[in-house]
Design a protein around this nucleic acid. Structure first.
Lengths: 181, 181
DNA sequence: TTGGATTTGTTGATTTTTTAACAAAATCCT
DNA sequence: AGGATTTTGTTAAAAAATCAACAAATCCAA
């Protein structure tokens, strides 16, 4: 892809996230974003139809990155999946600014829901692949585990990551072992 | 000027200076600069004919900035010129990375000469404007003072600015007062 | 509520940058 | 020295970003 596209989108998204750390999503203007990104206002409309579309794509890009770190279809035997989990927590650590601001910012209820949905999809792929056919119970299990996982992550991020990624994986792992996953 | 020009030139010059901090001027390639600046190689040729031209313009931009801080034609009565000097030292502090690397890098004898020339021009304007017509002696005086000034600055920068700008101005000022300037 | 100011979304003409290709020159290596 | 690789400088065509101008929508204060 053309170099300029990457640079421009990066500048826009970085400016956008920076502004979200300062004020509510609704009161951010396209003008501000363009100014902060040092980009012509019209350029933003070449990539995003809308302020909401910008938010959507911004979320999508980051969640794609996040779930690329723990691929549901990948080799997730019990041994390496602990590694995957560590990589995910480390990724969150590196991009803490984004996740923290988007979880904190008022007016973005969408994000937590999207995160939960992706977690559920990831889990259901993984569980259904591994055999057991008690479908109704699986649905409950998925909802239960996904909520728990997202909740822990949300707590960890918004509380400034009080424990290092490595420790979080250990804690999390012990909790999961209680459910023979 | 078009926004893109600023961004591109900044990226190129920043990459160039960054590389000069790592290796000799002569062994820096246009390819490296383009890579580090994240710019197409051809783009560099749209702005600079040459690696040497890039160096020239890079030096020119910075020296113009430097001597904009102590304008020779400006209001340089004995009172405010101490302020001007302070602003110059503070400017040097802010851009220490550039001036330090370009003074340290082997293969750039040009820079010190250019700096000395600009200092001499600045001084001669200032002195000739203020009257005295003993021209031959003035030439010596200019060479003397310019060399002294550039020498002090060079020492200050390459020795990691061991004293703050404010102190340097005081020291410098005292030295100048011995010559009734 | 009205009127002025700001923001929004769109457009067309222009400029800049990119990509990919090329031959010539320089550099490296054995 | 000689052959392979890298670097250099240039080019044409395509893509992206800029600027400036617009009407419509929103916001805000008097």
């Amino acid at each position: 892809m053309d170099r300029r596209i990457h640079k421009t989108r990066n500048a826009i998204i970085e400016a956008f996230v920076g502004l979200m750390a300062e004020k509510n999503f609704e009161q951010i203007t396209i003008n501000e974003i363009a100014d902060k990104a040092n980009v012509n206002r019209g350029t933003i409309y070449l990539h995003y139809v809308d302020k909401h579309d910008l938010l959507e794509q911004c979320i999508e890009i980051h969640l794609d990155q996040l779930f690329q770190k723990c691929p549901p279809g990948g080799d997730t035997d019990n041994f390496s999946s602990k590694d995957l989990m560590l990589r995910m927590f480390e990724y969150l650590e590196q991009h803490a600014f984004f996740y923290s601001t988007i979880l904190t910012n008022k007016g973005i209820p969408a994000f937590r829901k999207r995160l939960l949905d992706m977690a559920k999809n990831s889990l259901s792929e993984q569980i259904n692949k591994s055999g057991s056919n008690q479908n109704i119970q699986n649905e409950v299990l998925i909802q239960f585990l996904a909520s728990a996982g997202v909740g822990v992550i949300e707590w960890w991020i918004t509380n400034s990551m009080p424990y290092p990624a490595k420790d979080m994986v250990e804690e999390f792992w012990q909790l999961l072992e209680r459910f023979q996953i």
